[in-house]
Design a protein around this nucleic acid. Sequence first.
RNA 1: GCGCCCAUAGCUCAGUUGGAUAGAGCGUCGGACUACGAAUCCGAAGGCCGGAGGUUCAAAUCCUCCUGGGCGCGCCA
Length: 573
Amino acid sequence: MKAVVADILEKTLARAQADGALPPWPERPAARSTVDAPKNPAHGDWASNVAMLYAKAAGKPPRQIAEILKERLVDAEGVVLALEIAGPGFLNFRLSPDVWWRELERVGREGEAFGRSDVGAGQKVDVEFVSANPTGPMHVGHGRGAVTGDAISSLLEATGHRVTREYYINDAGGQIRTLAQSVHVRYRQLFGEAVELPEESYPGEYVVEIAKELKESHGDRFLRAPETEWQGPFAALAVERILAMIRGDLEALRIRFDVWTSEKRALHESGAIRRALDDFRARDLLYDKDGAVFFRSTLHGDDKDRPVVKSNGDPTYLAADIAYHQEKFGRGFDWCLDVWGADHHGDIPRVKAAVKELGVDPARLRFTLVQMVNLLREGKPFKMSKRAGTVVSLREVVEEVGADATRFYFLLRRSDAQLDFDVALAKRQSNDNPVFYVQYGHARLCSILRRAREQGIAPPGFDLEALRSLTLPEEQDLAKRILGLPDLVAGAALAFEPHRLVFFLQETVGAFHAYYTKYKTTEKVIGPDPLKTRARLYLCDCLRQAMANALAMLGVTAPERMERPPEEAGEAE
RNA sequence: GCGCCCAUAGCUCAGUUGGAUAGAGCGUCGGACUACGAAUCCGAAGGCCGGAGGUUCAAAUCCUCCUGGGCGCGCCA
């Protein structure tokens, strides 16, 4: 759509330069200039700023350049209805409605594929997200990263990337040791011992369940055994059971991973960490200090060198991360995306430094940060605390408001801005959630199409002659919005910004609702004029398809019917 | 103290990577159903885009400084 105008502009510029009316531009004009859809409809369908950008190189005022271009307009197909020069030198194009109508053909033809593109050109990418430590079920704070990562993955898939969704399991290290210890305390309690959970431990009920299972399978075998004997099996079972819980939490949100990478197995036990460190050591990227081993991350812009081996001989998290990224890139991805909680942003420089030393172009490792979720209850902030028992599990929210509303809510805002999440509100007033507004619009469209079917009207199909009978500005506007979806999806995918689709949906469905209401008594979709009816039904079907496709990319369902919400209780006298 | 993120309507936030008169939802006030779905729509009120400089035809957007908030700055993960 935009490409039509860009093409005309490019040819017009070439002609003006061939004429000698404009000097050649050192930079490629089309690369720098923009063709935008102006917000003000009085400014036409598409507007370009080339004339202003050209002013310096041409040594002429922008409006004069615009004039030169206008006189030499190359419009082979005759799609430009009007070309106006406005403001400081904007070229405002008004196109023949035929352009939209003709383009609408692809929506019906592409169907569920409409909105998808191939800007990714088959690149193989890895998206790593969630990666919550397997020490307990997921809480609401994790939900945002999960949904965001999943939606980004879907967007990348929709733009021709081959995506691997990956969960990195931090099943090694101190937290897991503490987890096993917590299980052991519970295990001892099951045998009647009066032991308390230490300060640093995991108090959740699920730990007791794991302890019970160990009691049943092993009896009192580990009761008096030294930690070296039970640490392994206790940790292993706990991680296995907790991962199953996490998997369930994610499934409830319709999130599935292709790969679950165990830090313990893939990096520690495999020797990958040792090999990576040996390699770094051989290249003098490591040095010993205070009994520990440091990586010279300052070589590549980090504030300070970071330890990779503790003085007790254990590798640090960074060491694992180095080996992990080496292993990941070794799997042949064109690039990898790490979706991290914003509280880990400080780790980015050191990982980038490491990746560079691994011989990987740092541009191939991309990050997107998901900011914190501010939890509120009835408008009042609160913090989740395991000891205070104020942890709100992701599962309870999803079960209460549904996967659609939860997903939509988490995608409502740019992921690098903080998000307020009112637990009480989310559970109670789920009707306020904008997802219902959007879904209702889809259901309404389905209802119209259903009605037409019931009246024996032929199923909607592309019909240029019929579409030409549509003259309402709202109808052209709707067509334009629908046709903007592919560009929108591509932009959102490359920027890792799924929220753009959310806004597209809200705005598009809003335009439809307004159109519907405005003409519900005068120019109905199903009306007396068979030609217009045919055209409008097709337009509605395109709209429905565009919305359904956008919703699918966000992992939200597009219902064909919705039940009426419960009546407001407050109306009683 | 240093680094990253943020600051836009009463509240929560968009703003198409520098474009023309800064938008939406919620909230407030006032309207619209014997009609394809009222979970809808229409209208009104509401702004020094945190502040000050700078870059240029053009700045909410880019640069510098300041103010105010969040998060980091472990031999935790």
